[in-house]
Structures are given as C-alpha cells and as structure tokens.
C-alpha cells in the first residue's frame, strides 16, 4: 500500500480522535488538568532539591529544567500518538479482539499503533515545550534554526526509542496473556529519562545509560541545545533507536505468528 494511503488512514484517525474529544469535553479538560498537575509535581521536585543544592551531577536548575522538559516532551508525544492504541492492542490480544485489527487492509503494526490519539497528552506536549522554551530563555541560549532542527531530529530518535520500548513491552502480551497492566512498566523504566547521564556511576551507568536507552533518549537532545550538536552522540542515539525499533518489530512479528484468534 503506498505511503499516501497510510497518511489518509492516519488523518482519518486524527479526525476520529478529535471528534471523540469534542464529544467528551469534560473528560478532556479533566485529563488535561491531570497531565498539567503531573508536570507541576515534577517541577516541585526540581524546585525543592535546588533550594538545598546548586547542582545535580553538574547540571544547574535551568539545565535540569531543560532536561525535564525534554523528557516530558518525549513521553507526551509517545502518550499522545501511540499509548492508547498500543494499550488497547495488549487488551485486544488478551480478549481475542485483535482479529479486527488483523482483518483491516494494511500493515498490522501500523493499524494497531496509530488507531487512537490522546489529545490531553498532546496538551502535555505543549506544556513541556513551554518548559523547554522557558529554560532556554533563562539559560540565555539563542539556538538558530539549524540547532532547533537538529534538536527536533534528536527528539525524533528519542521518540523511536520510547515507541520501541512500549511496543516490546506490549508485545510480551502475545506470550504472557495473564500479565494485565504490564504496559505500566514503561513508566517505571522511563523514570530514569529525567535524570542526567552523569548521575549514573559504575554498574548503574552500564545498565541505565548503555543498556536501557531511556537516559540517552532525553539527555542527548537536551545536551545538544545546551552544548551544541555532537555527531558521535547523535550517531549513538540514531543507531540505538534503529536497533531497538528493529528488535521491537521482530518481537511483534514473532508474537503475531503466535497469536491465535479467540473468536473463531
């Protein structure tokens, strides 16, 4: 199927999600409030720690704010574009309703991962972008168009890592039917994304920086804004993203082969 058809399908999903949001306006407002409140919770943590110290692993308060904003941007985009669809995929695999996705004329992963958009999480993206802009302003940084384009490209690689991790976790449902709520482990693993890379030492650094890519997914884009573009870091991030995505797609496809319809 040509790319233009997929784009049309995706735009239809966007339209459907928008209509759904307009139907449940109060729900949208309430969930947007929840998202904004969680951002405030984390801002309070940063505020409280920096009341008592000047630096965390060499990162000052506004540098930390930039890192936090970047990690929330990534999480917000994942939640906005993919979370609901992948969460539903796990549930559908358990109940056998995944048949409906497989019956649709298109790539099963595309159909499963892009069905629903969470508009309230996209509000979080706007709030997080605001935090990044505020931190950049307070740090006296003046990124040019190229810097911003490179930051966006690095964010894109980070988003691929987040997506791959969530897809891997959700695909586990093909094997572990009984593990309801396994998708929540994504939040646990990506809790590390808001921490500076330099805070990890010894074995923890090996595991959390080089093994689990949550830390570099947010640290490399934030560092690019702070200290300028670093080609080695960018390649590291891009290759990690490609590797994790390939692994996630491989596991998903293996899971598909295992999936047996529950309805027929």
């Amino acid at each position: 199927m040509p790319a233009i058809h997929y784009l049309r399908i995706w735009l239809a999903c966007v339209r459907y999600s928008l209509v759904r949001m307009m139907m449940f306006r109060a729900d949208f407002i309430m969930w947007s409030l929840v998202e904004v409140f969680w951002v405030m919770v984390n801002l309070m943590l940063i505020g409280v720690i920096y009341r008592h110290t000047d630096s965390i692993a060499g990162w000052g308060p506004y540098e930390m704010l930039l890192l936090f904003g970047t990690s929330r941007l990534l999480q917000g985009m994942l939640m906005g574009f993919f979370w609901s669809s992948l969460f539903e995929m796990g549930r559908n695999i358990r109940t056998g309703q995944f048949d409906f996705t497989l019956a649709q004329p298109g790539n099963p992963l595309f159909m499963a991962a892009t069905r629903k958009l969470d508009m309230d999480s996209l509000v979080n993206v706007i709030a997080s972008a605001g935090i990044v802009v505020y931190a950049v302003h307070k740090l006296g940084l003046h990124p040019g168009a190229l810097d911003l384009a490179l930051y966006a490209a690095l964010l894109g690689s980070g988003l691929v890592i987040h997506f791959a991790a969530l897809l891997l976790i959700t695909s586990a449902t093909f094997w572990l039917i009984g593990t309801q709520g396994i998708e929540g482990s994504y939040f646990t693993l990506f809790d590390f994304a808001r921490l500076p890379r330099e805070a990890f030492r010894g074995v923890a650094s090996l595991f959390f920086v080089y093994g689990l890519p949550a830390v570099i997914a947010s640290n490399i884009p934030a560092s690019a804004l702070l200290h300028g573009f670093n080609l080695t870091h960018a390649l590291w991030l891009a290759l990690t993203a490609a590797g994790w995505l390939a692994l996630a797609i491989f596991v998903f496809n293996r899971g598909l082969k295992r999936y047996s319809s529950a309805s027929s």
Partner: peptide, 23 residues
C-alpha cells in the same frame, strides 16, 4: 518495579548530595 523507582531516587539524591554532608 518499585525497586527501579528506588534506584531512580537513590541516583537523584546521591547526585544532589555530592559534596554535601546534609540537605
């Protein structure tokens, strides 16, 4: 998984305490 949250807290606070005896 709670242990992972604990590791995140340990990492953050250990970094915040660097060069300090108390907070």
């Amino acid at each position: 998984f709670s242990l992972f949250h604990l590791i995140a807290a340990v990492t953050l606070w250990r970094a915040a305490f660097a060069g300090k005896t108390d907070i």
